[in-house]
Design a protein around this nucleic acid. Structure first.
Lengths: 340, 340
DNA sequence: TCAAGGGTGACAACCGGTTGCCAAGGGTTG
DNA sequence: CAACCCTTGGCAACCGGTTGTCACCCTTGA
């Protein structure tokens, strides 16, 4: 039915099955000549180790799972790509898991695949800290764009990026801005707002927050309306999708960007460069983040579990200035001062 | 170490392990009362079947692999999303595999995961027909946007779509067009060209072909230059990425779209609606295609292998008319008549 | 009351590797 | 030449389920 087994190889090579097994998994444990011969025979026979049989005793599956909060979000594509490539280079397989923006589904799915994978990459997890810490205690985990004490993570550096973003707006003459927040349980949303607020205070800019909003184009309508209501001349959207939705709504309402209001996003997705006006956004080396996360995860698979450092890698974000930010012309729409 | 096994459950429930196993996998084979009790005990103990142990004998992994020609291409995202969701609904896990536009890598990767998955979804496979037929003979396979005799597939209906596209251009007054072809080993590229040419002939439009080009934005520059060289007033790009690259190059060269030349793409990716001018494109229900493909694959996993129909599902494509197509103004750029 | 038969559950072999432990063989040293 | 050590290979138990086969028990009908 399916290919040859170590038994076939052992018979052909005239050795014991244990020797064949060791020739593959523990080269030091078997003589050079024997090993060469075994590998030779294996190649001739077209032998491929059965991953399940292997996993059964060794508990190694050569597979890692990447859980993303929403597979729909183009932001993750680069992340996925980076992770996939790094995994492939290490001869690991990547399993893609969609959490559909639900902590419950996220947890269910993690349980479902837990036995089949060696570790988890959790991108923008929506689960509470405690649950993540617990999971990390039992299985190798690397968080992406999420930080939990004691759990290794890769987070795009964004506090300096947020500062640059606010400084950019301030330098254009904006004195008030509104942050359209992402989902309530998004760590990034909280973290960004903190950074934005700090930078705003430092630079003498008024900052409001509105939301939470789903990080999707379709949420942009409501978000835009709320933003205009605040009277701010600059809008910082939680991500590019939301920003694009905002741009659409503003165009509908004949609010000019950037003349009447400036708009910025986060992530620098492919579409940010294509929309009209092209979106100013805080991008990051997402593909590299995906790579790095896999790397750390693979490391922690080989390191003794008890004492491995919980490192937090933070590659720099980059402010990409395009056409959606500019000097606020004349009287910015200070229609009213209500908060979001 | 890791959770309870059927042995624990069997002991707690006072039955044999085989009974526990059957309670899960073959409910009819065990008494109703016993079964209830076993499941009850299993739940209490937090028992989860070990997928590898299960796979070892049963050869069922509850996992399917989706191989895409290039994970970078946003076109696949909807496909992936649809497939992922359908798989999840059936309690299957989706493994994502990237072929990097290389038939060799594609085959290698397939071999690598072959033992770990129940079947394959091959999206836009770049492998020769013979190899696909061979693979399909040994393992359940569903092709996506690729057609091979005897292998089940889901292909977005495009010949009628191409006709509509050409008819649309003709009705605007275009009398010559150029097709910027996709990769040489892309089945879609060949198939689309055939449909376009047929429609062009039928409608009295001159059709040229140029290429092949990589289906990426960065290939758009060379493609645009070649297209202009043909003197055609309408450009049909192999996909939206290429079309967007063409639009960029045309803008650089101050060729107006659609006044000087019309541009259309394929796939209707998210960005097609955002670029300037917004791209006319032949879209398809990609998410639904992903779903359907998984469905067929799952079917074929349960059906007896020998006689299962090699069905070819073809959901309709849809011409989305935006701003990149229009009436050719004045003298179209008939600078020269050379072919591509 | 007894035999036949269907429904249930147990036994045990097996899937294909991994790995602890032991033994044999060869080389080295005193 | 003997004692010893180290390298290398084999034996066999085990990982956690699945499944063919068989025995048993209870029901049903004669």
């Amino acid at each position: 039915m399916s290919g040859p087994t170590i038994y076939d190889v052992a018979r052909s090579a005239g050795v014991a099955t244990s020797t064949v097994s060791r020739a593959f998994t523990n080269p030091a444990r078997v003589g050079e000549a024997t090993r060469t011969r075994v590998l030779e025979v294996a190649r001739e026979l077209g032998y491929e180790p059965n991953p399940h049989a292997r996993a059964l005793t060794s508990n190694r599956t050569q597979t890692v799972a990447m859980v993303v909060s929403d597979i729909t979000n183009p932001h993750f594509f680069e992340l996925i790509r980076g992770a996939e490539m790094r995994a492939k280079a290490a001869e690991y397989t990547l399993v893609l898991v969609n959490a559909e923006e639900s902590p419950r589904i996220e947890q269910e799915q993690i349980r479902r695949v837990a036995r089949s994978v060696d570790g988890f990459l959790l991108a923008a997890s929506r689960q509470p800290d405690a649950d993540l810490a617990e999971l990390a205690a039992s299985r190798p985990v690397v968080l992406i764009n999420r930080q939990v004490r004691g759990v290794p993570s890769v987070v795009v550096e964004h506090s300096e990026g947020c500062r640059q973003m606010v400084a950019h707006l301030a330098s254009l003459g904006h004195t008030s801005l509104v942050y359209l927040a992402g989902p309530r349980n998004s760590w990034m949303a909280g973290s960004r707002w903190a950074a934005i607020r700090a930078a705003a205070t430092e630079l003498g800019v008024t900052a409001h927050r509105s939301g939470p909003y789903a990080p999707t184009v379709s949420s942009g309508g409501a978000a835009a309306d709320a933003a205009i209501g605040t009277g701010a001349s600059a809008i910082i959207a939680h991500n590019d999708l939301l920003a694009i939705g905002v741009l659409r709504r503003l165009a509908q309402r004949s609010v000019r960007v950037p003349d009447d209001v400036s708009v910025v996003g986060f992530d620098d997705i492919f579409a940010a460069d294509l929309c009209t006006p092209a979106l100013t956004t805080l991008g990051g080396p997402h593909e590299q983040v995906g790579r790095a996360a896999v790397e750390i995860l693979l490391d922690s698979l080989t390191t003794r579990q008890d004492r491995r450092p919980a490192l937090h890698v933070a590659p720099p974000s980059q402010l990409v200035i395009r056409d959606s930010t500019g000097t606020p012309l004349g009287a910015a729409p200070q229609r009213q001062g209500g908060a979001g």
